[in-house]
Amino acid sequence: MPSQIVSLVVNGEPREFIARPGVTLLAVLREALGLTAAKRGCAQGSCGTCTVLVDDRPAPACLIAVETVADCSVRTLEGVAVGGNLDEVQSSFVDNFATQCGFCTAGMIMVAEALLDRDPDPSEEDVAEAISGNVCRCTGYRPIMIAILDAARRRRGESVEGIEGTAPARPAEEAVSR
């Protein structure tokens, strides 16, 4: 079977590309569509840095043969910011120092987006479970968990003050971009 034209809806826009058989969604995003936020880490689904949302569910793009998700909706980190402004999760990652080397960040944010879309008020345990497929070798996870809980509060329009262990943050009103 030769290469074929495959369509996806990526970050809300229909995209077409030529895919050779068995090429991964990750390779298509990075190499055909120029969307390099999702990273190639382990290429076996263990590290989570390639996580994107497929039909609103987070999954490692390295394990998806792209033909199998033809015509599906795919959301990547490039589609998260609104009009050039960081969304609540992104700004919360910045304010809470949840990014160090940055290699896990795209995957962590996509998992957080999916979690907060489903559950606007997750517990710490919910956050730990949501990110359990995403490896971070810099932060020790604590700042990431704080950032996701903080993002949930920002999205709910609550004050960001008084979160134990939180770095000084901008007031919620300034940080919220939509």
């Binding site: 689904g45 989570g48 996580t51 987070p58 490692p60 998992v111 359990s132 497929g133 995403n134």
Partner: peptide
């Protein structure tokens, strides 16, 4: 099910 891999893997 909750201890099989991660939620992202369980979506696949």
């Amino acid at each position: 099910l909750r201890t099989i891999a991660s939620p992202t893997i369980r979506n696949l």
